[in-house]
Structures are given as structure tokens and as C-alpha cells.
């Protein structure tokens, strides 16, 4: 188009026109080259065969069966009939132990994972970390969050932010909310909600308004029979299973009729929960 325009110029001398031809040609070539983005051979992104991946899924059972939520059909070790409405919890600092003493902590992208029985997306954790291939003896993790990382307001978006632990009770976040209802002794119909919550406990000078200190109740879970072999390029499926009934039985028999529906200010109860948690989880590793 520009060429035609210039050719119509009445005052254009012939020698100028030939110069114009060359300049326009050069200009066109420059523009085309600039648009082509031909800056040499593009490097090829070779797939990484020196690492492997893991995918962790979470399932929740009672008496080895998937939970029938919102149904009053379970009885705990203390004999309380109960139902489960929802379970929300954090696990963090998942660590893979190798037989040569090497410990691989999962924290390249995130170190705290939130699980919610109402949110299926949270029940699968596609781990970002590129794991070194090899034979791993066991898996361990922190149930909850260690105090150094349990920082108030660090989660700004739901659902994690809704796990906040009130500041006056120590701040940070709940490790777990296991919400349900139980049928108190002597009742046949009227259930009472229980908030089986675990988080930072308090030391009271005089209950409930004089707190002298806080106690962190997170605990380590070492999963039994969690060894596996990881090949280069492989994605290993690891299923972590929470056996809900175990929260109430070993080593302490937890009785809802004794502790009531609300335990966030009851360190004795939360300590029982913590100590019962040691064998709540098992693992299933898929080949």
C-alpha cells in the first residue's frame, strides 16, 4: 500500500524511487524479522527423569468403613452413640525417611496441607516437590502445625482462614475440627453437638479469664508400614487413612458425657486427643 502511494508522487525523481524501493524493502524485512522472533534455536525442555512425584490422598473411616456422615450410627469406646458431620484438619512437614538416614521433607512448595471432608479437592494433594528416587522406609508428619509456623492470620482465604484459633486462647489455627453430635447418657432422641477441636491449649490461673500460658498440642505421626520404593519418573500414590474411632479409645477412653461439647479451653481433654492421635492414621501405598 505504501509503495503504491509513493509511486503516485509527481515530484518523485527516478533515482529517489529506486532508493525508496530499497528502503521499503529493507523496512519490510526488518519488520518481518522483528515479528518472526527468530532468535535462534529454541532449547528443548527435556523431561526430568532424575526425580519422581508423589500424590497423597486422604480418606476417613470408622470401623474400617467409609464414614456415613450425619447419621447417628456409631458408638465410641466410652459407649457414646455419635455421628460425624465434618472433619477439617491440617497436616504439615510430611517427611520421607530413607534407610540411609536421609530425610526428605515435603516443603518445596507448601509445607502445610488442609483436609476437609466437605471439600473433595482437599482430599488429594498432588505434591509439587520433585522427590529423589530410591527406597524409603517410612513416612511421618506433624498433625497440626508446629508453633513456629502456626502464625495468626497467615491464611487469608477460606477454607484455611476459617480454621483460626481465637487470639485470646492462644491464636494461630485449629489443628483439627471434628464436628458431630452424640447422644448423652439417658437420652434416646435429643443429641448434643460436640466440637472435638484440637489446637493451642491454655494454662489457667483461674478459669476462664486468667491465662498464664499456652501449650502447643500438635504431635508427630509416624505411619506404620509406610515404606515404599520410588522409581525415576514415577508418581507414587499414597493414601493416608484416618480411623476416626481411634480418636476416642487408645490410650484414653474419651467420653463425651464427661468432656461435653466444647473442649477448646480444656487442656486435659485436648491432651487426651493428642495422645490418642498417635495411631489414628494408617497408610496404603499403591504400586
Amino acid at each position: 500500500m505504501f509503495r503504491n502511494l509513493l509511486n503516485t508522487l509527481p515530484y518523485q525523481e527516478q533515482c529517489h524511487t529506486s532508493v525508496l524501493d530499497r528502503l521499503i524493502l529493507f523496512m519490510s524485512v526488518m519488520i518481518i524479522l522483528s515479528l518472526s522472533g527468530c532468535d535462534g534455536e529454541e532449547p528443548i525442555d527435556e523431561p526430568d527423569n532424575q526425580s519422581a512425584k508423589i500424590r497423597i490422598s486422604f480418606s476417613h473411616l470408622i470401623d474400617d468403613q467409609p464414614i456415613d456422615f450425619d447419621t447417628l450410627k456409631y458408638v465410641n469406646e466410652a459407649g457414646n452413640p455419635y455421628m460425624v458431620n465434618e472433619i477439617q484438619y491440617f497436616i504439615s512437614d510430611v517427611t520421607l525417611f530413607r534407610n540411609d538416614g536421609f530425610a526428605r521433607i515435603i516443603d518445596d512448595w507448601k509445607d502445610i496441607h488442609y483436609v476437609d471432608t466437605d471439600l473433595p479437592a482437599t482430599q488429594t494433594w498432588e505434591v509439587y516437590d520433585k522427590i529423589e528416587p530410591g527406597t524409603y522406609d517410612s513416612i511421618a508428619f506433624t498433625f497440626g502445625i508446629v508453633p513456629e509456623k502456626n502464625i495468626s492470620f497467615m491464611f487469608v482465604n477460606p477454607p484455611e482462614k476459617d480454621m483460626f484459633w481465637p487470639e485470646y486462647l492462644g491464636g494461630g489455627y485449629h489443628y483439627m475440627k471434628l464436628n458431630g453430635k452424640w447422644l448423652p447418657e439417658g437420652q434416646t432422641v435429643q443429641t448434643i453437638p460436640f466440637d472435638f477441636h484440637l489446637g493451642r491449649g491454655q494454662v489457667y490461673f483461674s478459669y476462664p479469664d486468667s491465662i498464664t500460658g499456652f501449650i502447643d498440642n500438635q504431635f508427630n505421626v509416624s505411619l506404620p508400614a509406610s515404606g515404599f520404593h520410588l522409581n525415576s519418573g514415577e508418581t507414587k500414590e499414597i493414601e493416608m487413612i484416618m480411623h476416626v474411632e481411634k480418636w476416642f479409645k487408645d490410650p484414653h477412653v474419651y467420653d463425651h458425657d464427661v468432656f461435653g461439647g466444647y473442649i477448646m479451653q480444656n487442656q486435659e481433654a485436648m491432651l487426651m486427643v493428642k495422645e490418642n492421635g498417635h495411631n489414628v492414621f494408617t497408610v496404603k501405598i499403591k504400586d
Binding site: 516443603d107 518445596d108 512448595w109 509445607d111 509439587y128 497467615m154 491464611f155 487469608v156 482465604n157
Partner: peptide, 13 residues
């Protein structure tokens, strides 16, 4: 940045 290194301070990000 990995959230393990730094989490956001603003909602809805």
C-alpha cells in the same frame, strides 16, 4: 514464591 516461604496477606489472592 512457594507458600511455604511466604503466604499472602491480602484476601482473595
Amino acid at each position: 514464591l512457594p507458600p511455604a516461604l511466604q503466604k499472602p496477606l491480602s484476601a482473595d489472592v
